[in-house]
Design a protein around this nucleic acid. Structure first.
Lengths: 337, 337
DNA sequence: CTGAAAGCGCTTACAG
DNA sequence: CTGAAAGCGCTTACAG
């Protein structure tokens, strides 16, 4: 391995002089700099970032721990994080928990050992333990996508409750009364928020939320599929509209509706959160979009400010607005009758 | 920061003794071990992996550099790599080049600085420069997905030419003669291999490949969309079948066909490489599947063998078989006439 | 079974 | 403008 000593010897200077050239720090005569640069080139020298990190006590690395990397929503969040990070001279280590708390804890431990400069993570349980473990080591962190009630920490998330409320009201305005909700796990805060927004809209319209129309599953395609079949075997009369807790649930749900011979929107209206990629044909799903790129960007910005010590003020919660996109997966109720 | 010295002091031993407990190395009396473990717990000590790496000259990290993380094909490859790596006690750093050579080079340089133990990467150009730069530093590497002709290096890839040949022959057997090919960039080896397989099948059937039916684009949805529109504006008479160079091209192509009012398979047959996820309704695309999980797994296994010095034999090329999956996106030609 | 010394490759803090 | 000494947090190699 070529080290700074080899370069120093070759250039006829001390290692610290080479270090100054590499880091562009302190005064160097042009003549010396040129000799050092030539030696670096001849030896194909690149500095060892591990020893630099040990000295600088900084690794220029942030961790991004997401809950499901196969969901395009998170792929887009990741892009936002990466763009903001590379602008700030940091690299991103991407980790995926599949919503498993033990995986999350394993990653946090590993990344703390590796002296990661900061954490961006999607909490799974509402427990503050992990946050405190990171804090105790004075490592900055920003919580992504889901609030952590009672914990004084920076959070960047979308307005799930508002989104659920607006899209449920949209269905109500079309005349729907039996609106089924296929929710993600209620241990996850966004699921609870969407449930709350849905129920609030119903109640505001004088409709008592019906437990038979609410099913709890996972944020997965397969789960959406299973929930629809379970729902239609369970309920009489069936719902006239379906609110899927996220994009993957929507895909699975539509697959099941297709199997049951139900057409969208003639037989049943469908709405969800976030778009489905790789859709063939005209996009037709009416939905609420969050801004995943923006979410990642803002969270990373805030984290990097913390790392650089330029973050202003106390921990705060940034709630990004959502948008209702009306397309063609919903029909007025009376059209069917 | 809590260091090994703090733990040592607390336990009343030397730092090296703590080190022995942490690494389970050398002889330690049970009594001493217990005292040290208690001190570790009380101080919430975790070893600094940066200094360990500096000493061990090993980071337990491998780099995985893929060409398009938004393509589910690569998400699945990544899972295979991660499973094989965690089994081998290594973590994975995931990087995405978007098929840009300068991004690839930037990542390789950064990861070399960070003393990554091994590289798994998807080459963009056929140039051997990058491979040599990694080799010169004695860092093991395995090339993923695409052959690197003339370079003596481990490669794990799929049989693209065979797959293209078998699926083109399938269309020929259905009676198609005007089979369009929407290929990825011909600078990329897999594009060339699929082109070769396609042409070989045509020639074997006594058909001269028609340049008007071949379009070169990118492995992107948008490109597939544009290529179909370009194709139909260019050619008279139009093709009766379409071979999309990958799954994303297929999605874009089908979108364009949809816009042009062409129905699959009645108006035109469509085939491609690799499945499209999040498909709603019965899967209907006839295609050749590679085995992305297997690809990642095998490549990571091989790389880890190299890192551990247990790799057997000279560099070799592992070519994974592909499989034709016949579904319903193709119709016999005479059915239309 | 345990420890003092030296060193991994770099940079901080001081000296000149 | 340049360099010798010390140290980041850990472990190897040697000694006892």
């Amino acid at each position: 391995m070529t080290t700074i000593r080899d370069v120093a010897k070759r250039a006829g200077v001390a290692p610290i002089t080479v270090s100054r050239v590499i880091n562009n720090a302190g005064y160097i005569s042009d003549e010396t700099r040129e000799r050092v640069e030539a030696a670096i080139k001849e030896l194909h020298y690149i500095p060892n970032a591990i020893s630099q990190s040990l000295r600088f006590k900084k690794t220029n690395t942030i961790a991004l721990i997401v809950s499901d990397i196969t969901n395009p929503f998170w792929t887009t969040v990741t892009r936002g994080v990466e763009d903001a990070s590379s602008e700030g001279g940091m690299s991103v280590i991407l980790c995926n928990t599949d919503e498993q708390q033990d995986k999350l804890e394993g990653y946090v431990k590993l990344l703390l050992q590796r002296q990661t400069d900061g954490f961006l993570f999607v909490p799974i349980s509402s427990d503050a333990g992990l946050v405190n473990r990171i804090r105790r080591r004075d490592v900055p962190l920003v919580v992504l996508d889901r609030p952590l009630p009672g914990v004084d920490v920076d959070v960047v998330r979308s307005d799930s409750e508002g989104g659920a409320h607006i899209i449920t009201r949209y269905l109500l305005e079309l005349g729907h009364r039996r609106i089924a909700l296929l929710t993600g796990p209620l241990t996850i805060a966004t699921s609870r928020q969407r449930l709350t927004g849905y129920q609030r809209a119903l109640i505001e319209s004088g409709i008592m939320p019906n437990p038979d129309l609410m099913i709890e599953g996972h944020f997965k395609q397969e789960s959406g599929y299973n929930m629809v079949h379970a729902l239609f075997e369970r309920t009489i009369p069936p719902p006239t509209a379906l609110f899927a807790g996220n994009n993957l649930i929507a895909v699975g749900a539509m697959q099941a509706l297709h199997e049951r011979g139900l057409h969208i929107p003639d037989d049943i209206s469908v709405v969800t959160f976030d778009d489905v990629p790789f859709f063939i044909g005209k996009p037709f799903l009416t939905l609420v979009t969050q801004s995943p790129y923006e979410l990642g960007w803002q969270a990373a910005k805030r984290l990097i400010d913390h790392i650089n010590g330029t973050a202003d003020g106390a921990p705060r919660e940034i709630v990004l607005p959502v948008e209702l996109i009306v397309r063609s997966s919903c029909a007025p109720l009376h059209a069917r009758d």
